[in-house]
Design a protein around this nucleic acid. Structure first.
Lengths: 227, 227
DNA sequence: CAATGACTTCACAATTCCTTTACAGTTCTC
DNA sequence: GAGAACTGTAAAGGAATTGTGAAGTCATTG
């Protein structure tokens, strides 16, 4: 069964980006925008993991942990800004299992999540293979097979293809795809995606001038062909 | 059939780490978080070995042993903190088979487990040998053979190779590999893994500049060749 | 307590990847 | 069909990641 992850941060945009990414990875995501709210939700929903911003209004992350630790030992990953590196120590002493420094890339956070969940005894990851037509994408092995042949993709290419294949037929805007690979790191230039798509097509399409898998939706974005 | 090991400690995190490690080594692990709970579980499940923390709430390790010894002679390995060195003597007098001082590294504990189980007349756990291509790794003998020749690996190198070979084709992040060799991950520098990998490659690859076994997955981690 | 080996950290080199730019090609709108 | 808007693409500089030798630290052994 899918693991439930509670994401707590007052930056709604960040929460959305993380949510989209984790859901695409097969996790069930619930959200809260401050510590107080998070406490109630954690009680009711009993998530398998909590991702927690240190800096928040109402009740900050450290305060949340002090309360929460009294009633549960759910693993916690802290999000900290660079300058707050002291919080890191405090956080780990208060019982955080790991921390990630903002801004971070989704794949970075994912690596931490996997490690923490595995440490917490979960050897059962989510369904790790996506298949569509002649293409098989394996998230565990980070490999892509086209017509039985392994194709080497860069991290960004892999993330984009992974996003597209997670919902064949659905159109992803460039911004969404950018979020997948950059997170909230910085506002990037959307056209960067075009270049990744070009390179992706060169690797997985039989004829990149008449793509069968990655279709362009004029004025909107890209989508993976549904069969 | 796989040996069953009961791990008893009130530090859940520690139990999880030990569990993950032992399961990877082919043991079946059951858990308890205090002495009272452990007594019931030991009765029902009849583990082949018990790993027992001395300091615990409710019923501590020594108390547990007094009760347990009346009904069974399951081998017991004690976990003690440094300061409790007196407990060690008491524990051994009460019938512990060995003890390990906290904090310990997983392989340290593993060595004790093997020794105790061997002494108790048991044979090896399942799947003690991993083979792939020209490489054979023997977890029992702690040996590695490449093209029929024995190769000397350091403990860390052995653990990393063992992890990688346990799931060929799966990518392990540096964080995960750090977990394998350190037990606790958030402290420690991920790039340390790079150095171990370099040294490993020098020992097992025919051409370490074009590795056939240990592949780098850029931006993600390392994996044992999938073919 | 010296010596050996293992582990970690650091600094820099080597490699791979990402982004941006500029322009060409395509699709849409009127 | 012309112009505007959008997309495809090649190339180059810069950023990020990995490889590696060496020094320093720690633990173990003789």
């Amino acid at each position: 069964m899918a693991k439930t992850i509670l994401v707590v941060d007052d930056e709604k945009r960040l929460v959305s980006v993380v949510e989209a990414y984790l859901e695409q990875e097969g996790y069930h995501v619930i959200k809260a925008y401050n510590g107080r709210e998070a406490l109630h939700i954690a009680r009711d929903e009993k998530p398998d993991l909590i991702i927690l911003d240190v800096m928040m209004p109402e009740m900050d992350g450290l305060e949340f942990m002090q309360h929460h630790r009294k009633e549960s030992d759910t693993p916690i990953i802290l999000l900290t800004a660079k300058v707050e590196s002291d919080d890191r120590v405090i956080g780990l002493e208060l019982g955080a299992d790991d921390y990630v420094i903002k801004p971070f890339r989704p794949r970075e956070l994912l690596a931490r999540i996997r490690a923490v969940l595995r440490r917490a005894g979960e050897t059962r990851p989510v369904a790790s293979k996506l298949q569509s037509g002649d293409i098989t994408l394996d998230r565990d092995g980070h490999t892509v097979e086209v017509s039985g042949e392994y194709v080497d993709l860069t991290p960004s290419e892999f993330d984009i293809l992974s996003a597209l294949m997670s919902s064949p037929g659905r159109v992803f805007s460039r911004l969404e795809l950018l979020d997948r690979i950059q997170g909230t790191a910085y506002e990037g230039y959307e056209r960067t995606i075009d270049v990744h798509i070009k390179n992706l097509r060169a690797k997985i399409e039989h004829d990149s001038r008449d793509p069968q898998y990655i279709k362009t939706v004029y004025g909107v974005g890209y989508r993976f062909a549904r069969e």
